[in-house]
Amino acid sequence: MENKMNTLEDLVRIIRILRGENGCPWDRVQTHASIRMDMLEEAYEAADAIDKKDMKNLCEELGDVLMQVVFHAEIETEQGGFTMGDVIQGICEKMIYRHPHVFGSGKADTAEEVLINWEELKKKEKRQETQTEVMQSVPEALPALIRARKVQKKAADVGFDFPVTADAMRKVYEEVQELEQAVRENGEIEEEFGDILFALVNISRFLKINPEFALTKAIKKFINRFEYIEKSALLEGKALSEMSLEEMDLLWDEAKIKLNPMQ
C-alpha cells in the first residue's frame, strides 16, 4: 500500500492539532515573538544547505521554513486575524501584479528591466512617495551588512552614488583615518567603526560582491588556518597556550602557503 502524499492542508491541520486543547504543551504556548528566532534560524539552515549544494537537506530545511509560515498563520487565525489562505492569496496576487510582462501587457526583455519594474511597482503598491520611505522600509531585522547594501542600492537608484569604484575606495581610507583620530582623542569610536563597515559595503556593490558571503568565506578561511596551527603544534607536542605569538605567526604563514585560499 502506497504512503499517502501529504498536502499543505495536512500541515495546517497538524499545526492546528498541536495548538489545540489536547495538543502539545510547548506548541500551545508559542507566540509570534517567541518563535521569531526559529523562523530566522530555519531560513539560515536552508541557506546553508544551498551553499553546501546538499539538496536532500535543502528539501528538509524548506519543510522547516514552511512549517514556520504555517505556525505563524495559525497563531493569527486563532486571534481572528489572517489565515493561511490569506497568506497564499496575498502572495499570488503580489506575484501576478509584479510580473505584468508575464501576466499583463507590460514589457521587460532582460532580468535588469524586471528588477527596475519590480521596484517601481513595489513603491506604488506600498504608497511610498519618497526614496527615504523606500530606504526606511528595508527591514531592520536583516543582518546589518545585507541591510547596508540594500539601503545603498536604494540611494544609487536615484543617482546618489560614487561615480567610480576608486572614489568608494578613497572613502574607506578616509573613514579609517577618522577612526584612528577617534581612538587617539577618545572620540566616537563605535560610530567611526560603523562608518568603515558601511564604506566597505559600498565597495562590495561596485565589485558585485555580496559582503555577507565574503565575510562568511573569510571566517571559514580563518578557522581552517587556525586548525592548521593547532594541529601543527600538537604534532610538536605543544599546546597553543604554550606557544609564543611569533611561533604561531610562523605557522600561520605556512598555512597561507599550504592551504587553498578558498578553503
Score class of each variant (00 low, 15 high):
L197C: 08
F198T: 14
L200V: 04
L200C: 12
L200S: 10
L200Q: 10
V201E: 01
I203D: 02
S204F: 01
R205N: 11
F206M: 10
F206A: 08
F206R: 03
L207P: 08
L207Q: 08
K208S: 15
K208Q: 13
I209T: 06
I209G: 09
I209H: 08
I209Q: 04
I209F: 11
N210K: 01
P211L: 05
P211T: 03
F213C: 04
A214W: 01
L215D: 03
T216A: 11
T216H: 05
I219K: 09
I219N: 04
K220H: 15
K220W: 15
K221A: 15
K221M: 11
F222I: 14
F222P: 14
F222E: 15
I223W: 12
I223K: 15
R225I: 03
R225N: 08
E227R: 07
E227F: 07
Y228T: 06
E230T: 12
E230V: 06
E230P: 11
K231E: 12
K231P: 09
K231Y: 05
S232V: 06
L234C: 05
L234G: 00
L235N: 08
L235I: 03
G237L: 02
G237T: 00
K238Q: 09
A239E: 14
L240C: 13
L240Q: 09
S241R: 13
S241W: 06
S241F: 00
S241P: 11
S241N: 03
E242I: 03
E242G: 13
